[in-house]
Amino acid sequence: MAKKILLKIDNVSYRYADAEKDDYVLKDISFDFECGKVYAIKGKSGSGKTTLLSLISGLEKDYEGSITFNGKELRKIDLDLYRSRDIGIVFQSYNLLPHMSAMENIILSMDISKVKVPDKKKRAIELMESVGLDETQKDRRVLKLSGGEQQRVAIARSLSYNPEMLLADEPTGNLDKETENEILKIFKDLAKKENKCVVIVTHSENVCKQADVIYELKKKKAK
């Protein structure tokens, strides 16, 4: 049975506002993303990987073509709501709030999404444990955590409102090999066990090897 297409990118092109008329970063890109799979989008620097992730995450909307999430065109939906409920984003540089603890970062994300969770603290601890963090780290400021721990907190935060899709931009770029594998295992488990659609932008061959589907971006055209 064919799985449901969660996100569909159809003939999408993008160029910066101040670029020349034909100077596209992305040109005629068409990808489909389904639940339960790990996708790797690879490409060289400047191939438009992060730009594509920005389009998918709704941070950039001046594109040509169509991007639909659950059949709805991104341009027509509330993108703040989309980012706070439907997708989770994990960045290479974690993008956690440094003045907050690990648990506060996770709970804030739940607050913003307005999901109904009976006990947010308990849920946050469960999420931290699910990504390999123990309870003793919940009250530590994120700046006092290691890179790997911060990335785990970022993943836990992105899962706090139980989104269908997880977008990760070079999530293991700042991590050592061992930690990278641990993080990738988390992603694979999310896809297989929780039927999440995981999209990882990377240029790491290791990541690509563990992905179910690999999309490669080349300058101005996808393969």
Partner: peptide, 9 residues
Amino acid sequence: GVLRTIGMK
């Protein structure tokens, strides 16, 4: 930037 990225209006 972080707050806006995680969906805060």
